[in-house]
């Protein structure tokens, strides 16, 4: 019947659109795995542990910004008990010297735009 053909075609089109991530995966040569962290120095010197930093670094940087810019507090008491100066350029970029290798790969993978470099000078590689 005429209507049935149309309905089946419509259903097929809907399922095809729905399966877009699957057929994109079939045709894609990009590695689906998460990019490995590229570090130049031992992570034990970081302000917090790696698990925390991977998931929450944006929160940390945001809190630092508020603390420094709005409240004038310049030192961050880390969970380990040590104190760090709250400074992206001074503290973070002291070890993470290459934004292309350290920041960009994961951010490109997750399609998250980095807004740091619209004010700060990016470490080399950008």
């Amino acid at each position: 019947m005429r209507d049935r053909t149309g309905i089946i075609l419509g259903l097929g089109a809907f399922l095809l659109i729905l399966a877009y991530p699957v057929w994109q995966a079939l045709g894609s040569t990009a590695d689906p795995a998460r990019p490995a962290l590229q570090r130049s120095v031992d992570p034990s010197g970081c302000v917090e542990d790696t698990t925390y930093m991977v998931a929450r670094h944006q929160d940390l940087l945001n809190t630092w910004r508020t603390d420094v810019v709005r409240d004038g507090r310049r030192f961050y008491p880390a969970t380990s008990g040590k104190e760090y100066e709250m400074s992206l350029t001074g503290t973070c970029m002291g070890c993470h010297t290459d934004s292309q290798a350290f920041c960009e790969r994961c951010h490109a993978y997750a399609d998250v735009t980095i807004t740091c470099w619209s004010c700060h000078v990016a470490p080399e590689g950008l």
Partner: peptide
């Protein structure tokens, strides 16, 4: 409470590639 979004993506891409991994 943010989580490691890159690992979330690795999990989801594992599903779409039919090669599931659980980070």
């Amino acid at each position: 409470t943010t989580t490691d979004i890159a690992s979330v993506k690795a999990l989801v891409l594992g599903l779409t590639h039919f090669a599931p991994t659980v980070p």
